[in-house]
């Protein structure tokens, strides 16, 4: 009112900023949608029962990804089975037992850094550490993934342990409970959500990992039971995707795998959100 030209200028600026922000939001959404639609559009028509239920054969020139699916399941199971006790145990020790705060700080910082290292470096180390001694096999891949996911499991468990109210611990100690009983009966049940969330995040990471496995787990497509499978080389879905697209030019198969991985990722994120919601509800009771 007092200075019309100034207010006009401001208004113009407002409109411009709003337009720019809308543009970035639009671009983000468009990119995600494009990726989803493109991958699903290219992949879904190529998903057939035969593809999912058979193994590849050079004689009949048939391609099947059953071994890759099984290998993925095996590697997820083996990794979780090893990383869970290690990560949760370390987290419990650091939060509940350790008294040297400086050392705990250093370990937490190291774990934080560890989770930011490019996965190909894990692959390189895993190859030298595991594949050289036990041969290229799924187990060597799983062990590499254990190192990769240890920080995730440890940190999410730790954060969750810190949210368990100190008053619960005091109450239990006040009744004459020993340290381990307090941890087992009062603290751990309160951090189950953190452990589960960590697991889900790790499964997501394992599903999506390829660089570390290229070095360590190999490329074979044989159908095995879990024990034999872990001892033998094998490609997971992501590695198979790489091989089919890059080395065999089978883009249809590659996109089919991509579509499957995409759907799995969405499901995993959904599960993580569900777990968080479930426990948030229980906690607010």
């Amino acid at each position: 009112m007092l200075n019309k030209s100034l207010s006009k200028k401001r208004k113009g600026f407002e409109v411009l900023m709003k337009a720019l922000m809308l543009l970035s939001v639009g671009l983000t959404v468009a990119l995600v949608l494009f990726l989803l639609i493109y991958v699903l559009g290219q992949g879904v028509p190529n998903i057939t029962w035969e593809l999912l239920s058979t193994k590849p054969s050079y004689l009949t020139e048939r391609i099947g990804i059953l071994p890759d699916i099984l290998n993925t399941v095996y590697i997820v199971l083996a990794t979780l089975l090893i990383v869970l006790p290690l990560g949760v145990g370390a987290a419990i020790y650091l939060t509940e037992y350790a008294s040297n705060n400086k050392l705990v700080g250093i370990i937490e910082y190291a774990a934080e850094t560890l989770s930011g290292i490019p996965s190909i470096i894990y692959g390189l180390v895993g190859m030298l550490l595991f594949s050289n001694s036990m041969g290229t096999c799924l187990m060597a891949g799983a062990l590499t993934l254990v190192i990769m996911n240890l920080p995730t499991i440890m940190r999410t468990t730790q954060e969750s342990l810190k949210t368990v109210p100190q008053s619960y611990r005091e109450g239990a100690f006040g009744l004459g409970a020993g340290k381990w009983r307090v941890v087992r009966t009062v603290v751990l049940p309160g951090c189950v959500d953190g452990v589960i969330t960590g697991c889900i995040l790790s499964v997501g990471r394992i599903l999506g990992e390829s660089a570390a496995l290229l070095f360590t787990a190999g490329f074979a497509h044989a159908v095995n039971g879990i024990i034999d499978g872990l001892a033998a080389p094998g490609a997971t879905l992501t590695v198979a995707l790489y091989v089919y697209a890059k080395e065999q030019g089978e883009f249809g198969v590659a996109f089919a795998i991509a579509a499957i991985l995409m759907v799995l990722t969405v499901l995993i994120n959904f599960a993580a959100a569900l777990v968080q919601k479930h426990f948030a509800k229980r906690r607010s009771l």
Binding site: P165, S167, Y168, E170, G171, A172, G174, L175, G176, A177, G178, R181, T185, V186, P189, G190, R282, R283, L285
Partner: peptide, 25 residues
């Protein structure tokens, strides 16, 4: 034994809360 400033029942059933101490021992 001890009773604290802020009520601090464990997030479990009423029964389990009271039985916590005896079970501990």
């Amino acid at each position: 034994g001890m009773v604290f400033q802020k009520p601090n029942p464990f997030p479990m059933s009423i029964y389990d809360n009271v039985a916590y101490g005896p079970r501990t021992h």
